[in-house]
């Protein structure tokens, strides 16, 4: 199998089909949040819909979550007078049912037992009656509010012609524990390929990694929904750029020396995969006697 065919197979194995267990679980949680919102704010009629990778077509099995935007009408004061009030009121409402982790603009949901549910809720308010632009409250950073547009984000990524490379990039990020958020990674990949998006999946992915090695300090990204008003520099620090460069260089060297299957590992067919506990038990038996773990306050 060629490296390119391997990478295409890898992406296929990462695809999440509608109706799969993970998506059903996400949808159940989404419906629960929708019902809670409507009960808590009975006089409001928020748009509660998919944002993020599910809407963009870039979801992968190994690194997925559900971004649900919750946008209230411009003149709706039911959930709060200010953006901050909306953010806090939605968070407090959800805290009856979940552990809520307050992120920059989103609210991450965990079960009361602490299990991550992979669901982010993004409260916001339309800026007027005639456009799809919204204001989001920002919990961090210089500006307290951010103007953005979900439809612009979705179409920018979904129609970029780069969704396959973005999926591979997300898998590469996850496997190598690179702490870059999804949106800046998507923007970086689209920016690199905007000059030349020709060739196979392998060629295009290698083009992206090569640009990370050679040009990462010079690649600028901007929010397509708010190019001048949304400063993304916080999402692409010097430290992060260095990490992208180092890992991209290692990855290209490894792929050049051993091939792409060595980088990402074998693509396992679901039917051949042992249940997790059985696989772990077999692995424990195979390592033989281990040093007993210990702890010390020292």
């Amino acid at each position: 199998m060629s490296d390119n065919d391997y990478l295409k197979d890898l992406l296929k194995s990462q695809r999440m089909e509608e109706g799969c267990d993970q998506l059903v679980a996400l949808d159940e949680e989404r419906d629960k949040v929708d019902a809670l919102l409507r009960e808590a704010f009975p006089n409001s009629d928020p748009d509660f819909t998919h944002g993020g990778s599910r809407a963009k077509g870039t979801m992968i099995r190994e690194d997925y979550d559900l971004d649900e935007v919750c946008y209230f009408d411009n003149d709706d004061t039911g959930p709060g007078e200010t953006l901050e009030e909306i953010y806090n009121n939605v968070a407090e409402m959800l805290e009856d049912e979940y552990i809520v982790v307050r992120k920059r603009s989103a609210l991450r949901l965990k079960s009361k037992k602490g299990k991550d549910l992979y669901v982010d809720i993004v409260p916001g308010r339309y800026i007027d009656d005639n456009s799809t632009d919204v204001f989001l409250h920002q919990n961090e950073g210089d500006k307290e509010r951010l103007k953005t547009n979900l439809e612009t984000h979705i179409s920018y990524v979904r129609d970029s012609g780069c969704t396959d490379v973005i999926q591979l990039g997300k898998l590469w990020r996850t496997r190598n524990d690179i702490l870059i958020r999804t949106f800046p990674l998507e923007l970086l990949i689209i920016e690199v390929l905007s000059g030349d998006n020709s060739g196979t999946l392998q060629e295009r992915f290698e083009r992206v990694l090569t640009a990370f090695v050679d040009e990462i300090d010079d690649i600028a990204i901007e929010d397509p929904a708010n190019p001048t008003g949304n400063d993304l520099s916080f999402a692409l620090t010097d430290k992060l750029r260095n990490r992208l460069r180092t890992v991209a260089e290692d990855t290209l060297d490894t792929a050049g020396e051993y091939g792409w299957e060595h980088v990402f590992g074998k693509v396992e067919k679901k039917a051949t995969v042992l249940p997790r506990v059985a696989a772990l038990t077999a692995a424990a038996a195979s390592v033989g006697a281990a040093a007993p773990p210990w702890s010390d306050e020292a």
């Binding site: 997790r276 007993p292 306050e297």
Partner: peptide, 27 residues
């Protein structure tokens, strides 16, 4: 020889299974 057994043990504990190796008392 050191980290892999530890992490395998942790994964089994996450699954509600007992630690598969011996454990030392603290300190």
């Amino acid at each position: 020889k050191a980290l892999r057994p530890y992490l395998i043990g942790n994964s089994l504990v996450e699954e509600g299974k007992p630690w598969p190796f011996d454990e030392s008392p603290h300190g």
